[in-house]
Design a protein around this nucleic acid. Structure first.
Lengths: 256, 256
DNA sequence: AGATTTACTTGATTAAGGTCAAGGCAAACG
DNA sequence: CGTTTGCCTTGACCTTAATCAAGTAAATCT
């Protein structure tokens, strides 16, 4: 059903460089990176690949080299709650070191992706023996925590068109440079998926997107958006938000 | 306006015992606890006391000895997004060690409370020098993260009466023992506050609560609830939820 | 290319919750 | 003890988004 290829699992050089580029591992020594990479697997996954299911025994954690992965849980009757959709440089499954060694959510590849999987045992070893690294990990978790706080805030304070506007703004890696001049953005994954990522139905998404278009003058062609200026977007979306624009980015590079 | 008393800030014995009873500090040695307590302040706060405001410079973190504290942010036009409402044994403000040394949210006492405040510098020192403690801290943050994930899930999958039912269930410290026999619960803080904690308006809360009453046969007198059996509550509320009942508790003891 | 599936849009309808306004109740105050 | 204040409830109405149902566009397959 799903195609999976192990690209390399012995030469760690490429993956090592990549790992060091990830915020969490940025301050690791070569030796530590080598340790972490022992027994690693780099998989090329196609859309639809389930990496693990909620409740599975957790022995590995994952780092996204590129692509997009949906993190979610589902109810008995099949309804999904999307917790997050992650991309390049994001890690997941690593919190299963603590508590009961099972994954508390499921992970599914939603766009063609390269994904590195690593041993949780070695990660734990590093945390226990290198206070500096433990601190990086804490810092990384604190960052994620703030993001999730913002997420809850968005759900309660923004309406559908505003949430979409905010989503689009966060697709831009550096909004400051985007100020004032036109920009083109490609939606990173299916509209239906963006809809559930933002907690709404596909129909609502479609309608809300055209409301957003009317309100801010953006141009929509399929999954390509043309934005003359981000200012109206900010006015429209961020007015319902607390504090500081911009909200932290979704960690992608979908715009040109 | 608000009454604040420093109860003790030199004798650490009482506070030390308390600190050890908190999950996060459970494995600290006496010496470490003494270090953490250096310069601590134990305040008795009345309803309405603002402990800090989003953006304040962060030099201390807080541990709740008893009472309830609202963690929130607000938009320019005054709307509040409630991030969490914490109680006995919970800590807050400690994530400001990482990143920019400011509080990312505001904290307000919502019921009479005793609150211990401690130096972030000493916490950081402990994290950097004791891998075991760093691990406790990571574990604590992982636990919180799962809770926030559940929170997002609840907001998107449960309707108003179900969210209230779920809230009530989580007020019970150990649902397993409550199985089958009647139980009395006192709502821990104002209904209006519970409403915003659950992301709804006070009017909606009021109406949703009586729907819940009709659906599950619970009895409501002011802020006192009489529950003959929690089973109908579970049937009603948890059907919209993923996975495992019960959801993790809200960390309180409002029932008899 | 044509066929088939999947993704997206649009319209009509319904349900859920928000908003506005008024009234009741209970704790706190003079 | 009555008055005041804040909290809660109820009713009427409105807005938003979900649902149901077609229909269209786009992508995939053979």
């Amino acid at each position: 059903m799903q195609q999976v290829k192990a690209i390399d699992n012995h030469t760690s050089s490429n993956s090592g460089d990549f790992l060091k580029s990830v915020q969490l591992f940025g301050e690791c020594t070569d030796k530590e990176v080598d340790l972490l990479l022992e027994g690693h697997i780099l998989e090329r996954c196609t859309k639809g690949k389930m990496l693990f299911v909620s409740g599975d025994n957790a022995e590995r954690y994952y780092v996204i080299k590129n692509g997009w992965v949906k993190i979610f849980r589902e109810t008995l009757d099949g309804a999904q709650a999307i917790i997050d959709i992650l991309t390049e440089g994001h890690t997941f499954g690593e919190t299963s070191i603590f508590e009961e060694n099972t994954y508390p959510y499921s992970a599914e590849v939603v766009e063609p992706s390269e994904i590195l999987s690593l041993s949780l045992r070695k990660l734990r070893y590093l945390i226990e023996n290198n206070p500096k690294f433990a601190l990086s990990m804490l810092s990384s978790m604190a960052r994620y925590r703030r993001q999730q706080d913002t997420e809850i805030e968005h759900r309660s304070l923004q309406n559908a068109p505003q949430r979409i506007g905010c989503f689009i703004l966060r697709l831009m890696p550096n909004q400051n440079e985007a100020k004032g001049r036109p920009i083109t953005i490609h939606l990173p994954y299916d509209k239906t998926l963006i809809a559930s990522r933002l907690g709404m139905q596909p129909e609502t998404f479609s309608r809300a997107l055209s409301k957003l278009k009317d309100a801010t003058g953006i141009n929509i062609k399929g999954s390509t958006l043309e934005i003359q200026s981000i200012d109206p977007l900010i006015d429209f979306s961020c007015s319902a938000c607390t504090s500081e624009f911009p909200c932290k980015d979704l960690g992608c590079k979908s715009c040109v």
